[in-house]
Design a binder for these strands. Structure first.
Lengths: 232, 232
DNA sequence: GCTTGACAGGTTGTCTTACAATCTGGACAT
DNA sequence: ATGTCCAGATTGTAAGACAACCTGTCAAGC
């Protein structure tokens, strides 16, 4: 007989309820820039767009709220979350801690499957970079992080890290960060991979932390620049 | 004129909407052991208990679900979350990372107010321990952690760490951990405080990590014991 | 006896409608 | 220009309803 918990876990993943579907749809809409940070999300409009009722839509909004993607102001309704410079710093700091741990654990466990996934994501990333294909590069990077996060074998870290990544892509929406950093970034993620492959936890953690720190520096610089322009 | 964001932040905190009130009520009910892990939460019963309508209640449940306090199985409804031994390990690991960071940051920033709050929580804890007053001791410990979490000045870490603590008290509900560890625990938190007070980030981090590791060891032992008894 | 299948009851998932409380923006008066 | 107040718009919440689905029971068949 099947393990009860496993059975439940599968069911939770597999059964797509309307609210989770709508939640995913809205999440994509926000992260693709269709809804911009600071924009109000009027419930009735969203209902018409998605074709669901208000109660269901509101439940879906709670999911996004929990991930920090939208902020609901009482009696004013949901708004796509904005982020201040200070908060952005904290966001990257938090990501650095967790991703450092993920890297360390990947190197410690050295699961062949994980190593393979990270490697293939890297190959794809390099190819996309060489071909100047930014869309594919973004996709490859997503795969890279997904493998890294899976690889640390910690459901809690996973559940915390995914929203942070989402928030960061949302942040990029604000700051329109140009991926000119891609070359340096490529070297950094390659270093992470090597450290994991060679099973060096300390090095892997350091590489991850450094990588996030570098990304943070670039992103924050961009934000400062943007907000400085706004002042003018 | 008041800063817009601050104004919003205050409003979000201050205006108690029915759903957040109900959410808090349910949270307390779960964490006080009124609802036990694994127990089904029938929506209509909860409606009658809290006196709110089903849509509102369901939104409140989404909040708890986001914190991991309840797990909603499609077409079966919400259940108070249970935790396996493996998950408990991951939970403590995640807490260790974040709390280590919190300790490090507290020591680095050395905010006088934070140091004071931690100190007074410790005094209260020691007094409660001496008087064998477990309720007050628990309260003091909550204050201690609250100060530590506030002190790291990172909203994201805060938002991640609080649910973890909630989950751990829920876990204690399962394993009925006797606080025999309190003496050792007291020494550990005192060490954390000293490290923070003396402004030694590395030491503070290590103390926090050790403290969580010790708590984890005790709790996991208890869980293993409990589940072993269950087998019989 | 054990497994399989169908049935009944209960619960959730979702929709519809409705209305009070509150916010927002603008007209108006000072 | 500033403050006040009103009307429109939107959210917060309630109530009722029904289909889909799960669970456990009970009978039929191997």
């Amino acid at each position: 007989m099947m393990n009860d918990e496993l059975q439940l876990a599968l069911r939770i993943e597999d059964v797509p309820t309307v609210r989770s579907t709508v939640g995913q749809k809205l999440r994509k809409a926000i992260m693709s820039g269709m809804f911009k940070p600071g924009q109000r999300l009027v419930e009735r409009e969203l209902c018409e767009m998605t074709g669901v009722s208000r109660p269901t839509l509101r439940e879906a909004l709670r999911l996004l709220e929990a991930d920090g993607l939208v902020t609901t102001v009482p009696h004013r309704g949901p708004v796509v979350s904005t982020i201040s410079l200070e908060e952005a710093k904290q966001l990257y700091a938090a990501r650095g801690i967790l991703e450092g741990f993920a890297g360390r654990e990947c190197a410690r466990l050295r699961d062949p499957d994980v190593v393979r996934r990270i490697g293939s994501a890297l190959v794809k990333l390099k190819a996309a970079f060489a071909a100047d294909d930014l869309a594919t590069a973004l996709e490859a990077k997503t795969e890279f992080y997904a493998a890294l996060i899976d690889g640390c074998q910690n459901a809690f870290v996973e559940r915390m890290l995914r929203p942070l990544h989402d928030r960061i892509t949302l942040l990029r929406m604000t700051s329109m960060s140009h991926p000119r950093r891609i070359n340096k970034s490529l070297r950094e993620v390659t270093a992470i991979w090597r450290a994991i492959q060679s099973g060096d936890p300390d090095l892997a953690e350091r590489c991850c932390v450094d990588h996030v720190a570098a990304a943070a520096a670039a992103a924050l610089k961009m934000i400062e620049q943007t907000s400085a322009e706004k002042e003018t």
